[in-house]
Simulated assay, not measured.
Amino acid sequence: MQPDLSVVFSSHGGELRSYLQRRLGDGHIASDLVQDTFLNVLERPETSIQDIRAYLYAIARNLLINHRKQEARRRTETCAPEALAEMAADQPSPEEVADSRLQLERIHALVRELPQRTQDIFALNRIDGLTHAQVARELRISESAVQKHLALAIAHMTHRLRAR
């Protein structure tokens, strides 16, 4: 049997609104959800209700969950123009480009100080991306020789970079 909704509303409407307002922080939305809760009860007159208060809270909780999901879908985060200016650009700054060129020139100079064979091995491995085995096949030398030349190149470059 369906209870008299005006009595139920006057008995539970206020506490239901307080419950929703505490969770939402917005009295207007809480009032809307209370109305939706009672509309939900009205739309199901055939439902047998044992505990009307528990039933109202269950409906209100479900409406609250749905409301939060909808808000999350609708939400678009705004960003202040100042924050956009601080974001990293896709392209390096002119200073970064100049610094990278200087570093690259230093490395090229250090590589040119190496014996020609070591330069070739270093370029094939570190620039062209060949594995030790591929460099060995390409130059018809052992993998061990490739490793020794690379170790020599790295030790030389590390020593020269630390000395600066």
Rank of each mutant, 00 (worst) to 15 (best):
Y55I: 01
R126I: 08
H149R: 09
Q21R: 15
E77F: 08
L64V: 03
Q70W: 09
R73L: 15
V41H: 07
S31K: 14
A133M: 12
P3G: 14
L139F: 14
V7G: 05
A54N: 00
A155T: 10
V97W: 04
A98N: 03
A85Q: 15
A123E: 07
V7A: 13
R23A: 14
A30T: 10
K69E: 11
L64R: 01
R137L: 05
E86M: 13
R17N: 12
A72F: 07
R106Y: 02
L104F: 04
T158E: 12
A89I: 01
Y19G: 03
F122E: 00
M1C: 12
L130S: 02
A60D: 00
Q116F: 05
A136W: 05
D120M: 05
S31G: 15
S93G: 06
T47A: 15
Q147N: 10
H108N: 06
I49H: 08
H28I: 05
T47W: 03
Q50R: 10
A30C: 09
E46S: 13
R74D: 08
E15I: 07
D51W: 02
R126E: 13
A123C: 03
Q103E: 08
E95V: 06
L130H: 10
A109T: 09
T131A: 04
I65C: 10
R23L: 15
T37Q: 05
A72N: 08
A88W: 11
P92N: 12
P92Y: 09
I49K: 07
T131G: 02
L130C: 06
I154G: 03
A155C: 04
R61N: 13
D32W: 04
R117D: 07
R137V: 03
A89Y: 03
M87Q: 15
H28E: 13
Q134T: 04
H159F: 02
E77Y: 09
P115C: 04
